[in-house]
Design a protein around this nucleic acid. Structure first.
Length: 476
DNA sequence: TTGCATGATTTGCT
DNA sequence: AGCAAATCATGCAA
């Protein structure tokens, strides 16, 4: 899209209009001034050189004037100015003017311009709306923020995406700047050209009949030409934004695996809420925050997890045990911290008792059958009674159809369990903490393969925290 | 390259 | 609106 094209187009329109006038002139020359060749390029004597009052002289005068009008475009500016002045001052000018008016009236030329205003172009409106929505058009403040927010939502809003978002924003700003610069340029050019043409027509209206309506029409033509260019600008801007979008935002299917940490957090929550793995909105938000993902991603994850877990429980058993153990360790850590806090400097609670690394719970598959936690927590520790503990694993087995009878727990694990028990028994009020942990409650994956509400709400919801609380179940 | 894992989307249901 | 189920599409390790 170039300004020169537009100018050329506008000039064409103008030329066409002038051409109409010229043709009329020619017809005058051909009919009224029969015998005088105005087209032949014959050099005619200057108009002031004839003062004759006879008919022939008058005709020649008019012929001269017409010839001058016809050749005015070939003249230099100074020459033209001088000629124009001469023409305006010519004694025959009013007569010529009235003749032109008359002819114009007869040919109905003025009516031709009586076109109604075009209704707003729907495509242009569409482009405008689009640019506005994308933050390219409209107010500068917050420009692109909506789109950037959309970007954040679409691509997960993870921290590692922030670079991409700033990149996106920078590119969008660049597009916006170019768009506005170009738009300004075109508007300026349009105004300049309109002013120029209007001046020209006003000037010409002294020698030929040009009604204000015609000037208006001409302005309309110019504006239409320019708006078509503007539309091209808008269109290509939209295209650029679309390309940018597709590069940054619409790569929705171009998934990126969540970080290991995020997956662990989600898994911990899932397996500790196996009885009812439906996090509340608050829990989702909390998880999303912790995992640096969006709430909808959390929902997706749980949706996928539930369905995949249910489809192949056997496959997830190991994972379930792992996370259950992990949660237990976390709980023990929390308990230890509590003990340490309450019994500061006490020699009876040595730190060494809690130096449990996760790896120590990395049971091999032979050892890590569901017996682990049921063994752990169905034990006869008086201060550590967990109602319904182990049910979830039994249920899983029954669903799996696996027969299993008291598999052995690795010695190292057992020792950790013992330590754990010891710690827990030392920790006042810990019953609630673990008892409130649904990990050890029954899970309600029914025979149809669907989860149902836990029968004991207290086993799902921590007595100290609201439903779906993340704190009580994972890191704490 | 292949097969599995996994995040995202779509569809239909309640 | 939220969910289950099916499906798509990509990431990734072998």
């Amino acid at each position: 899209m170039s300004f020169s094209i537009c100018v050329a187009q506008c000039t064409d329109s103008l030329a066409a209009t002038m051409d109409d006038q010229a043709r009329i002139m020619q017809s005058i020359g051909g009919v009224s001034l029969a015998g005088h060749s105005v087209q032949g390029g014959m050099a005619l004597p200057p108009p002031h050189g004839h003062d004759g009052t006879d008919g022939d002289g008058r005709k020649q005068d008019i012929g001269d004037i017409l010839h001058q009008i016809m050749t005015i475009t070939d003249q230099s500016l100074d020459e033209a100015q001088a000629k124009k002045h001469g023409l305006n001052c010519h004694r025959m000018k009013p007569a010529l003017f009235s003749v032109l008016c008359e002819i114009k009236e007869k040919t109905g030329l003025s009516i031709r311009g009586a076109q109604e205003e075009d209704p707003p172009d729907p495509q242009l409106m569409r482009l405008d709306n689009m640019l506005l929505a994308e933050g390219v058009a409209g107010p500068e403040k917050g420009g692109g923020s909506a789109a950037a927010a959309a970007a954040a939502a679409a691509s997960g809003g993870a921290a590692d995406n922030s670079i991409e978002h700033s990149d996106y924003r920078a590119k969008l700003t660049q597009i916006r700047q170019i768009y506005h610069t170009e738009l300004e340029k075109y508007e300026q050019a349009c105004n300049e050209f309109t002013t120029h043409v209007m001046n020209l027509l006003r000037e010409q209206s002294r020698t030929r009949p040009i009604s204000p309506k015609e000037i208006e029409r001409m302005v309309g033509i110019i504006h239409r030409k320019f708006s078509s260019i503007q539309m091209q600008l808008k269109q290509s801007t939209c295209e650029a934004v679309m390309i940018l979008r597709s590069r940054f935002l619409d790569a929705r299917r171009k998934r990126r695996n969540f970080s290991k940490q995020a997956t662990e957090i989600l898994n911990e929550y899932f397996y500790s809420h196996l009885s009812n793995p439906y996090p509340s909105e608050e829990a989702k938000e909390e998880l999303a925050k912790k995992c640096s993902i969006t709430v909808s991603q959390v929902s997706n994850w749980f949706g996928n997890k539930r369905i995949r877990y249910k489809k192949n429980i056997g496959k997830f058993q190991e994972e379930a045990n792992l996370y259950a153990a992990k949660t237990a360790v976390n709980a023990a850590h929390a308990a230890a911290a509590a003990v340490q806090n309450s019994q500061a400097n006490s020699p009876t609670t040595p730190n060494s008792g809690f130096q449990m690394k996760d790896e120590e719970f990395q049971l091999d598959s032979a050892e890590s059958k569901n017996t682990l936690l049921s063994n752990m927590f169905t034990g006869s520790s008086g201060s550590f009674s967990l109602p319904n503990s182990g049910d979830m694993f039994l249920s899983m087995q029954s669903l799996n159809g696996d027969s299993y009878q008291g598999a052995q727990v690795g010695a190292n694990v057992q020792s950790q369990v013992d330590t754990l028990r010891h710690v827990i028994s030392q920790t006042a009020g810990y019953n609630d903490a673990l008892g409130g942990n649904p990990m050890y409650s029954q899970h309600s994956l029914n025979a149809n393969g669907g989860w149902q509400d836990a029968t004991t709400p207290s086993s799902v919801i921590s007595p100290t925290e609201g439903p779906g609380s993340v704190h009580s179940d994972t890191s704490n």
